[in-house]
Nucleic acid binder design. Sequence first.
DNA 1: CGGCCGTACTG
DNA 2: CAGTACG
DNA 3: GCCG
Length: 731
Amino acid sequence: MIAPQTSRDAEAKKKIGFDALYALDNESDEAEDDGLLASLQKVQGKTLGDPTISLSRSRRTPGRPPGSLVRSKSNIIPALSLSTQQHQKPRNTKSPLELLNELSAAAAATSTSNSIVKDTPTLQHHNTVTGVPSLEKPADDGKMPPSSALPASSAIPMIKNKKGKGKQVVDIKLVPEDQRIFQGLHFYFFPNSDTHPGRRQRIIKAIEYGASWQDKFNDTVTHIIVDRDYDFEQLLKYLKLKELPAGIVVVNENYTATCMDFYKLVDTSTIEFRVKGYEPPASSATIAQPNPSQASEVSLQLKPVKRKAVVLSSQVTSEASLNLVSSSAASLSNSPAPGVLDPQQVPNKDEDELDTAIRQAKESHPLASDDEDDVEGHKRRKTNNWQDKFQCMHKHTGKSGDQGPNAHTLVVLQELADHYDQIRDQWRCKSYRQAISALRKQTTKISTKEAAMRVYGIGSSIAEKIEEIVRTTHLRKLDFAKLDERQQILNRFMKIYGVGLHAAENFASAGYKTIDDLLQKAELTDNQRIGIDHYDDFNSRVPRAEVEKHAGIVKKALKGLDKNYIVNTMGSYRRGAQDSGDIDLLITKPGASIDEIRTTVMDRLVPLLTKHKFLVAALAQTSQADGTKWHGASCLPDSSTWRRIDLLLVPEEELGAALLYFTGNDIFNRSMRLLASKKGMRLNQRGLYKDVLRDYGREKLSEGTLVEGKDERKIFEALGVPWRPPEHRIC
DNA sequence: CGGCCGTACTG
DNA sequence: CAGTACG
DNA sequence: GCCG
């Protein structure tokens, strides 16, 4: 697994190891090509070295209809227009890799570096060139790509939609790196222009998911996406070919959307993607895999896809021309972009985008009751829908309260909730959080007890407090609580990893008052000692960019071991947070058993990263045969701050449930699970089960039978919950 | 008055 | 097993 | 804490 370790001193090793990792990081797509896919090398080199996309205004492109995506003469839209320069450098300097041949294969992956800020959901929609400077590279690669390398206008791929009198501006926003399922693939559309709104959206989405759009048919093309109105014969005729070169995938327009639905490349030989008159080669041969990194074109059978693409397509065609630019792609085939796409659309206050995201969510669930919007009346309307009471039925971004009519009240109540959280009064804490959630949705200011009482989730106690807060802008109870010494101590102790209420009380009862007291006098478990040694580290937030760095290192290392692994960054990161409490990584490999994954991660990945001093502590390692997690701490090179990092190992069959679980937030999860249990089902991180027998208390008597585990959306569906993208799962 | 998520690791 | 942790 |  690890490259031979000599007797070099540890620091040097660490440094070298990280250099290698970062080299790989930057090197991105190319390194893996060593001999593997010679035929594609040229493309990639070209692509990366020739960043060109510019979706320019129509007036600049007389030959094209208004609103066209315009490709410059390089013919290629680079999936990532930034970072071109970085790609060049490491290519010829392989030295670090030799020390870490294990990791070298990791280069297979995608380019992480440049994705770092682009991933950010809050990426401003309308920032054009100004967005660039905010794109920062990981630590040791601080330089921005020389702008000379690319036309300024193309710094950020962008579509200016002239149709709407120039008012509509649609950025191409790359999805987070680990979701770029089309990374390294080169698409040629047929017809290959973006004049058709539906196709235009397909192209945009494909680019956002990492594909490059080839202007002309050439030997770099890996996939030809054929519109439904055309057949294979027409394609060949147009290309003036007798037959296509081997290895090119020919699929119809459903393909890209379905891949996005499943977060991966799906089997291309499925009938669903068949182009009229085209007989795909034997399934195994259909693979064109320039960059198998994350996009293994697994031969997993597609799950039944319910949409009837044929029927819908025509609708779309007409609908798409309505200018719903950013949503038309989603509606295109009745399969909206997957949730992973959405993080980009929410956190910002841009109404259009938010609305779009919401509408997409709704469109995707024609079956789901569409009642989320009318829940917010004060008068508890008699809904005959008992499910409305579950938080998971409602969208929350967690942000709307900042400006709302009850903003101040919410702040104070949140302090109280935090207080109860700190003293581990879970039920009061839960009640306060639910009350906050309910109050946040109110559209008018609630200033009296009576008004507050009418809100579902607010009872007399909290209602009184609301009135007091409004009257006095203060809450005496809170001041009191803040001053209580014992509470202070408990609070202090319980922020130690591994110390809960019980241990904290014991410590306090023993007379210990400070962290230092504990260190010197108390009996501590190993984990608690680590928690104390890194008390400040573990209690500080991890900036989003740093989360990405940690994730990137794990990703590179893992892909070095086996390029088919997929690493997803979860938790609050997936919900779009600008900083996180820890780093949550979901690890899976299409087609692999959990045993294989566990073995790879536990026996190879963790030791490797530990050896390189990236993983610096193990707090909870899976021990059971069916274990699926690793909790510990990681530390970036040239940093001394330890971060909590959690790895969750997931077989593909459980990916949907795992995504759901690991995305959270906790309240949302509990709400979903409670709802499931009320429906005689059971939801956990592995799947949704039905026919669960429970005794009187709800105690589980039987496991139930699996309903769904693989597809996150289908779990929502099965529970009758309207789909919510991650950033709307903040309760 | 009882229920308020379901699971997994540690010691 | 209780305690602590994960979302 | 709130709810049934």
